[in-house]
Amino acid sequence: MIIAERKTLKELIGMVDGFNNILILGCRGCVAVCSAGGDKEVSTLASALKLGLSRQGRTIDIDERTLVRQCDPEYIDPLNDDASDYDAVLSMACGVGVNFIADRCPEVNVLPALDTTFYGANLSSGEWKEMCAGCGACVLHLTGGLCPVARCAKSLSNGPCGGSQEGRCEIHPDVACIWQQIYDKLSGLNRSDDMKNIMPMRDWTTAGHGGPRRRIREDLLP
């Protein structure tokens, strides 16, 4: 899922400076699952902003709403009917949601309440880790299912850089060397010889280096 975290209250209070009424808009998708922008976080942020502003002698009207998702038109298009009445909509969705509202709701002043960070898995309650970078040309069949793009600090394709020590990445002892893990995983599967197959130079256009990406499925088009 997409992982995100709330911006600091200082930043958000600055963002709503000069506004009289805002709508804090949550999303029940990824950001609700990672406890960054669901119903509960909307209500906490509303209270935190009210308190922060009241300490500066300011009050603004804050409404709260949470949509099923902010990345599908059927949920955000209704904002065109009532959200332009707000000085701003402070979206607690990932950056996709904020962009999509900006694209589709011309009169809505949308602002991001979160920093969108990565695609990750939930290791345990309250802990998430990056697992995929959405490169658009998956190589996990060659690497024992472990991603060298997202999980190697240098996104190397053909083995470790030589800086790892005792299975730890040279950037930080807390970070595992994913190439050590790929080797261990493949060895456990009796596939360590797979590492001798050199991956060709990658074409990073699929990873977004060729401009914004788009996908069309003819069979699903209206």
Binding site: K40, T44, A46, S47, L51
Partner: peptide
């Protein structure tokens, strides 16, 4: 109790 109720008390 929600965090918002604790904060609202201060407000």
């Amino acid at each position: 109790l929600e965090v918002s109720e604790l904060l609202d008390s201060f407000t």
